[in-house]
Design a protein around this nucleic acid. Structure first.
Lengths: 152, 152
DNA sequence: CCGAGGTTTCACAGATCTTTGAATACTCTT
DNA sequence: AAGAGTATTCAAAGATCTGTGAAACCTCGG
């Protein structure tokens, strides 16, 4: 099935977003699953990975709020599914690295003399990330608004 | 000097932006350098890395347009410096990732049946990244405009 | 056209990160 | 409260990525 190739390819792309291999493959599997929710065992079988790796991956994806437990009445196994706004969440994660850049720049500014080239460069860097840090949440809010409007 | 710590810390943060270790350290060194431009040998000495690693790192940073050769009359060694708008460039690099996500989503949509859950999820994903793909360049343009205006 | 200084390339060694398999800890059901 | 079925943790093996040192390759001045 071509969907499997597409899923593996998506996993590769997700890795460029900073995810590790196992979580990336698991997340891709969630996307491509034909069910509303899946169990750890399912994932392990489909992806050919052992339960330990799957468990670790699920824990990781849950801590970054990309997936969540799904109610599964009558089943002994835990079911999981993609969360609403998972993509916006993934992008928001970038916000943390933007803030880290901002902080690093501030530290640099504090550690360099007032009119050195380093000071000037660090100030430019700080200004840029301050700008992005302000604008990124807006971007995501606009998306959420647009999406909600689109649904009526 | 505290600046060195700040530089090493910045390198760590840059790695979260997807840079590898050596390029990250080299880029941080460019930022914190007290000169307008630096040579490969300087970098090697300051960072305690050998010329091979430095060379590879510089090549990498040049291909992504974060640094550039600087004219250095009368010097035999090549000089390099941070490029104008380096930070905006670094962020634009994310645009490539966004496009890859978009493409991966399209592939998935093509590979799944019309009304399956997978199809629906992939469509949401596609819409989100299409939105970001449209908006990100605007964001960067706004920054450039604001920056230029600020300088008068 | 030769030689010195500088840069790049490359195979290998070393470090780092991942996965695995198995033991441990849960948690329902009866 | 016991036991079966799941889930999680962890040390060790395996795979991957990175840095090193040395050789090859430029480039410019003499």
């Amino acid at each position: 099935m071509a969907a499997d190739d597409a899923a593996e390819n998506l996993a590769l792309v997700l890795m460029r977003n900073g995810l590790q291999k196992a979580p990336a493959r698991v997340l891709a599997a969630f996307l491509f699953a034909e069910e509303e929710s899946v169990t750890a065992t399912d994932l392990g079988e489909r992806l050919g990975m052992n339960s330990g790796s799957v468990s670790t991956a699920i824990t990781m994806l849950r801590t970054v709020a990309l997936i969540e437990r799904a109610p599964a009445p009558g089943s002994r196994r835990e079911h999981y599914r993609l969360r609403e706004h998972a993509w916006a969440t993934l992008m928001s994660g970038q916000n943390a690295v933007v803030q880290a850049m901002l902080d690093a720049a501030e530290d640099g500014i504090a550690a360099t003399g007032d009119d050195s080239p380093a000071h000037r460069r660090l100030t430019e860097m700080r200004d840029f990330y301050a700008f992005v840090f302000r604008e990124l949440p807006d971007l995501i809010d606009r998306w959420k608004a647009e999406r909600t409007a689109g649904r009526g």
